[in-house]
Nucleic acid binder design. Structure first.
Lengths: 101, 101
DNA sequence: CCAATACTGAAGCATACACTTGACAATAGC
DNA sequence: GCTATTGTCAAGTGTATGCTTCAGTATTGG
């Protein structure tokens, strides 16, 4: 789960909308595409990027591909944010104790 | 703190590297630029995007501009991730209780 | 079996965006 | 005051990427 790919994937508003929608529950590609006013092909391209980044998982059964959130990507993202925050707060703590002296 | 700008800002590897570096502590623009092999101008451009997204805060004193992490951007990002996770897990919960019946 | 559905693949286009150069402005140190 | 440092502004360039069209492949339902 490469953080680089994850941020790149979510950097696009359409892909983020897709992911947000999927976090409410699994959808077929067509259903996922319905509210977006771009081509199905376009959606499929975005989907591939989301999949490669570990944010979304898809499975094809018959002719319909079902898409669902892949927890691993989200977990990687959360860890990244948590790590940055802890570094940042440690810094603030040091500053605080310096001022306290 | 627009989530759209935040993800766009962090979607670029250079900007993310800058932010990661700043989370360890404040830096001047030149110091921030030093390890990156792009122009100072390029760094300044990235910096503006980070600033507009609420991830970084800068202050110019004399001729040196000091850059530090702005907690608001990070908080917005964390909230977004938390919200997606909770939606996603609620879904898994419903599935679980369905199977339990 | 035939038509409709649900995607997939290749190729092209047009814009956004990362990055550069070159010139300039303001401050700091000697 | 002169020079070096630190950053800013405007404009241009090339590539990445979001999106489209068109054509094709399975699969499903009547």
């Amino acid at each position: 789960m490469d953080i680089d790919r994850i941020f790149h994937a979510l950097g696009d508003p359409t892909r983020r909308a897709m992911f947000e929608r999927l976090s409410a529950g699994p959808l077929s590609v067509s259903n996922l595409a319905a509210p977006l006013d771009i081509t199905l092909t376009g959606v499929a391209q975005h989907l591939q990027i989301l999949e490669e980044s570990g944010l979304v998982q898809t499975e094809k059964v018959g002719r319909v591909r079902t898409c669902r959130v892949d927890g691993r990507g989200l977990a990687t993202l959360e860890k990244w944010a948590r790590d940055r925050r802890s570094m940042w707060e440690r810094r603030l703590d040091r500053l605080g104790s310096l001022l306290a002296e």
